[in-house]
């Protein structure tokens, strides 16, 4: 984080990427440097990449919430197409360009395979409780 702050202090000068209609600063490795680091080691597995999504999309991408769509059970080609659209920064997004920009084609495909295999969760009935206890109870029938 120290480094992040340092870089953010300099972003006025070093920020090169101006995303269309996006109001963002970039920092740390450039995408070229990132790709170089990435190429030096074997690709992380689809599960390793995909499990990073769970804090927003739920365990194994199964959460069916309003803001973040479920990824579990998503058609492979649809997933790939959509991630590449985000990565290309074709239009403004809430965070998905920021997230997708670092992935290689192979990584996107590995994640697509990983999520296509997962069991989707159904939309929980709308009277679910905000607290986890409510959630747990409501999901217990699944």
């Amino acid at each position: 984080m120290k480094k992040l702050l340092l870089i953010s202090a300099m972003t006025g000068l070093t920020c090169l990427l101006q995303a269309p209609a996006s109001f963002a600063l970039t920092g740390g490795l450039t995408l070229e440097q990132e790709a170089k680091v990435r190429s030096e080691y074997p690709m992380p597995s689809g599960a390793m990449l995909g499990d990073n999504c769970s804090a927003c999309h739920g365990t194994k991408g199964a959460e069916f919430n309003e803001a973040m769509p479920p990824l579990a059970g998503m058609d492979k080609q649809k997933f790939i197409k959509q991630m590449k659209i985000y990565r290309a920064n074709k239009f403004p997004s809430i965070v998905m360009y920021d997230v997708a920009r670092v992935f290689s084609d192979e990584e996107i495909e590995a994640m697509a395979d990983f999520f296509a295999k997962q069991k989707p969760e159904e939309w929980t009935l709308p009277n679910w409780n905000a607290s986890i206890k409510g959630n747990a109870k409501e999901n217990s029938h699944e």
Binding site: M68, P69, P70, M74, K78, Q82, I85, K90
Partner: peptide
């Protein structure tokens, strides 16, 4: 794009 939803959400 053009209101064609990309996910089941």
């Amino acid at each position: 794009e053009q209101g064609i939803a990309p996910t089941r959400n």
